[in-house]
Design a binder for these strands. Structure first.
Lengths: 124, 124
DNA sequence: TTTAGATATGCGGTTATCCGAATATGAAAA
DNA sequence: TTTTCATATTCGGATAACCGCATATCTAAA
């Protein structure tokens, strides 16, 4: 065994934390794992918008948009500011968009790879 | 109306595609939205590993690991190579890890923000 | 061909996610 | 205060995600 007692203790104390952190990590990722929320986040990347603007942009029922926004809000990925009777939503962190862009690029590459594979095997 | 007929046609043809692309985008994001798969991907970031190595690293039932690996494989996020009776899994795209790191950084910032907020309001 | 080790899958049950429809809340205007 | 517009929430049902357990498949060695 190569771990000191101190290190073992530290690890055993960190393990549950590490697990919890991974759950939080996954919780944030879940927030970007839905087509509607992806669309919402890209809408907000341009500038803050209020709910009706988002409803019009996405052409989805207001309740649906509102529920998805709530989920993003609960995770602190967007924040809100009231102006008159409108509630404006703002993207809290640009890196969320960066992560989405990365995954989108990965997706494009996978699609292209599959397409050229289909060409070769004659599946087109 | 400012769109030419050609542009309108292009858009109407692209719309369903755009929706489909967003679904694929979300499908890839779903793959990183689970604590177990996050752990798997970080394990594979170091170097390719076979299933038993992953089972030992994560201390989870082999069936569980295998099923999560299947999901990543079906989405082309990892690929496999057989060596004797072992199947080695390799991370297909480093950007998947980059995206995970971004989301992890966002998560840390959110946690810290909440912690310092708790200090101020005396919730610690 | 039989055995053993490594990996994958099928089945059943539990929990989580998502949505539509209706309704509640909250601010502003009448 | 009543009405109106914007936004949030609740309820119920459908679907999907996840897991444990058992078992199937595949490879290599005996």
């Amino acid at each position: 065994m190569r771990l000191s007692e101190y290190e073992k203790l530290r690890i055993s104390m960190d393990k549950p934390q590490a697990q919890e952190l991974r759950i939080m990590h996954a919780t944030l990722c879940k927030a970007i794992a839905d087509p509607t929320r992806i669309a919402l986040l890209y809408e907000l990347s341009e500038n803050p918008k209020h709910v009706n603007q988002l409803v019009e942009a996405l052409k989805l029922p207001q309740a649906t948009v509102s529920r998805h926004l709530k989920m993003l809000r609960e995770r602190s990925m967007v924040y809100t500011r009231r102006e008159g009777s409108y509630v404006f939503y703002t993207l809290a962190d640009q890196r969320i968009l960066d992560a989405l862009d990365l995954m989108r690029a990965v997706k494009s590459d996978i699609l292209n790879r599959h397409r050229s594979l289909a060409e070769v095997t004659g599946d087109l």
